[in-house]
Simulated scan of single mutants.
Amino acid sequence: MEPMGFEIAKLVVQAATPIVVGILGWKLSKRLKDIEQGQWANRKITEKRIQIYDEVSPLLNKLLCYYTWVGDWQRHTPQQIIDTKRSLDQKIYVNKYLLEPDVFDRYQEFMEELFDHYSGIGEDAKLRTSYLDRRTSTAYKWDDEWKHSFVPNDIANENTVRKLYEAVMLAQRNGINA
């Protein structure tokens, strides 16, 4: 006959096995749900980043065209360009914490190249591009009231504008793939 302690140990092991298996199963299930929840959250963030990309990319391109004299630049007034900047600022700043930090940083660099932001209290940002060529362009209907929308000097470099545009677009793409 086996000792009484051995019988008790067998009973404890038999009773504990389903409890241990149950606890391990519960922990595994919880971990799998946490992973699934994380994947769902990442998918939602990616979907939102794609939506932001779809909204801001055409506006960024409009600025690129205006500052580099390509595409439909002549269809936009200085006020429309400033309004485009405001719209972009609103979209980027509202979504700043959903975007990768690099997107926000590259966006700010791009805007710093395009605009003089601090031209006076209550004043609109000034465009850092020449109005002289626009004024004489046959493709552009000029209004002398627009002169105040431009900085007189410190004009954005077109190559720098292109590089910064490329940087913000690549940062957006990389943020979507993150």
Rank of each mutant, 00 (worst) to 15 (best):
I8C: 08
W26E: 05
T17R: 03
Y93C: 05
Y131N: 12
E166T: 08
T136Y: 03
V21M: 07
D54R: 11
A41W: 03
V13G: 04
K85E: 09
T17Y: 09
L127W: 08
I45R: 10
E100Q: 11
I176T: 09
G38Y: 00
P101G: 11
G175T: 02
D154H: 14
P101D: 03
N174Y: 06
G120H: 04
L127F: 06
W142P: 06
G22T: 00
G25R: 00
E166N: 08
A171T: 01
Q51A: 14
A41S: 11
I19Q: 03
S119Q: 07
R128D: 15
D89A: 02
L164I: 00
K48T: 14
Q74L: 02
F104V: 08
D154V: 04
L11N: 07
I35C: 03
N157Y: 02
N153A: 14
I176S: 07
D54G: 13
H76N: 15
S29N: 04
D83R: 13
F6C: 09
I45T: 12
I45S: 13
Y165F: 15
P78Y: 04
Y53R: 10
V12M: 06
V56W: 01
K10Q: 09
D144N: 05
K62V: 03
R106Q: 12
A178F: 12
K91G: 10
Q80T: 04
E36T: 07
R128W: 13
R106G: 05
K10L: 12
N177W: 09
P152Q: 12
R173T: 09
G175C: 03
F6L: 13
F110E: 01
E55K: 06
S137D: 09
M4L: 14
L132I: 05
V21R: 05
R162C: 01
M4S: 14
S119T: 10
A15H: 02
W69T: 14
K10V: 09
G22W: 00
L164H: 02
N157A: 05
W26Q: 06
D34P: 07
M169V: 13
Q172A: 08
R49A: 06
P3C: 14
V20L: 06
H76C: 12
L59D: 14
D105F: 00
V70G: 15
K62Y: 01
R134L: 15
I45M: 09
K27V: 07
A41H: 10
A125D: 02
P3F: 12
P3S: 15
I35P: 05
K48R: 09
S149M: 05
V21Q: 03
I23H: 00
M111Q: 02
H76G: 09
M4T: 13
M1W: 15
R134F: 04
L98A: 11
Q39S: 11
M1V: 15
F115N: 07
E109H: 10
W69D: 15
